[in-house]
Simulated scan of single mutants.
Amino acid sequence: MKALLSIDYTYDFVATDGALTTGAPGQAIEKALVGVTKDFIANGDYVVFAIDRHDAEDAFHPENKLFPPHNLAGTKGRELYGELATVYQKNQTEKNVYWIDKRHYSAFSGTDLDIRLRERKITDLYLTGVCTDICVLHTAIDAYNLGYRIFVVEDAVQSFDPIGHEWALKHFQVTLGGELVSFGKGE
């Protein structure tokens, strides 16, 4: 069984004026990311929107020392970007669509993601979203450590750091045994 993880494709991470934006590279993957998400939903596969959620008043969160405020609860910055927002709104009540608020880079850290995947006997995880070398990477590492097979949809991931993006793609393959796959319809 397989599942798609859609990681942090939000206004703050993708829009030109987002607080911590990938900018044009992140915007360029929208078509592929939306396409693979629609396909997984239509096929009845499990689709998880794992979305960063921060609190402006949280003085203890370590990211506050590393990055500007982003994906703050109740702000436009935390909303899904572009057409992905419409896809989620149209399908959010489907049994195979699930939203996770995450506080750390990995979608597994402090969430019930592993339990939900195991309940559904899911073994294969397809990863999409941003940033390839931060949240997608940390999610992939946890998935590897938990015994999942990892597939990274190469045309549906991106970063604000081109060198980090390329390094992470290689790391997925060489160190985590993951496969790079392409949606192919995004071009």
Rank of each mutant, 00 (worst) to 15 (best):
A3T: 06
G26Y: 06
G77I: 07
G26P: 04
N91T: 11
L66P: 08
Y88A: 05
A15E: 06
A19R: 15
A24Y: 02
K90D: 15
E57Q: 12
R53G: 03
F49G: 02
L80D: 00
T86G: 05
Y81K: 02
P69N: 06
L4E: 10
G23K: 07
Y9I: 02
T37G: 03
R78H: 04
G35W: 09
V48F: 06
D55S: 08
T16Q: 11
A42V: 07
S6P: 07
K65Y: 14
K90Y: 13
T16V: 06
G77R: 12
D17W: 14
D55Q: 12
I29M: 03
V47M: 07
K31L: 08
K38T: 12
A19N: 14
T37H: 14
A85Q: 05
A56T: 02
E83D: 14
R78G: 09
V48N: 01
L5A: 01
L72Q: 02
Y46E: 09
S6F: 06
R53A: 05
L33R: 00
A19M: 12
P68Q: 02
T22N: 11
K90F: 13
V34T: 15
A56C: 01
E79Y: 00
P68A: 06
A15C: 11
N71C: 15
A24M: 09
L33H: 00
M1I: 03
Y46K: 06
K65W: 10
H54V: 03
E63W: 08
D39L: 15
A50L: 05
A3H: 04
D12F: 02
